[in-house]
C-alpha cells in the first residue's frame, strides 16, 4: 500500500473508468478484439490499483464478495452456458442465439450463450487475479 494523495485521488476516478472500460471490452468481444479474458484483466487492474492505493482490507470491503467466490461463480456461469444447449437437443457448448426485435434485414439485438460464457470467463479471470494479488498484498 502506498501513501500518496495523488494516487488516492486518481484511483477513485480510474477504478470507475477501468471497470466501465472492462465491461465495454467484454461486450465488444464478439465481433472485434476484446472479450471475457481481456475484460476481466482490465477490470481486475482497477481493483489492483485500488489495492495499491488503499490497501488490501479496503479492497476486500469495496469488492463485497470474496474474489475466490467470484471466480467460482464465473466458472459456474461458463459451465451453465455450455450445458444450456441441452434444452435444445444440441451438443455440449453449442451456441444458442436469441435475436430480440429482429426484422427481415436487421438482426436486432443478438443475445447468445456465447456472451454468457464470456461473462463467466470475465468473472473467473477477475476473481482469480484478485485472489492472487490480494494474497500477495497481504503477505508483504
Amino acid at each position: 500500500m502506498m501513501n500518496s494523495i495523488i494516487l488516492n485521488a486518481a484511483t477513485r476516478l480510474l477504478v470507475a473508468l477501468l471497470l466501465m472500460f472492462s465491461v465495454y471490452m467484454l461486450l465488444r468481444g464478439h465481433n472485434l478484439p476484446g472479450g471475457g479474458f481481456i475484460g476481466g484483466l482490465i477490470g481486475s487492474t482497477g481493483f489492483v490499483l485500488y489495492a495499491i492505493a488503499q490497501g488490501a482490507p479496503a479492497t476486500r470491503r469495496a469488492l463485497r464478495a470474496e474474489p475466490q467466490s467470484l471466480a467460482m461463480v464465473g466458472l459456474g456461469i461458463a459451465l451453465f452456458a455450455g450445458v444450456f444447449a441441452v434444452f435444445f437437443d444440441d451438443a455440449f457448448f453449442t451456441g444458442q442465439w436469441l435475436f430480440i426485435g429482429a426484422t427481415e434485414d436487421d438482426k436486432g439485438l443478438p443475445i447468445s450463450t456465447v456472451l454468457v460464457f464470456d461473462i463467466g470467463v470475465y468473472l473467473v479471470v477477475f476473481g482469480s487475479i484478485l485472489t492472487l494479488v490480494l494474497a500477495l498484498e497481504e503477505e508483504v
Binding site: S128, I129, L132, A135, L136, E139
Partner: peptide, 15 residues
Amino acid sequence: GLFAFALMLVYRGYQ
C-alpha cells in the same frame, strides 16, 4: 495462470 501461481509459490517458499 500457471506462472502467477508458481511465482506466488516461490515467494511463499522464500518466506
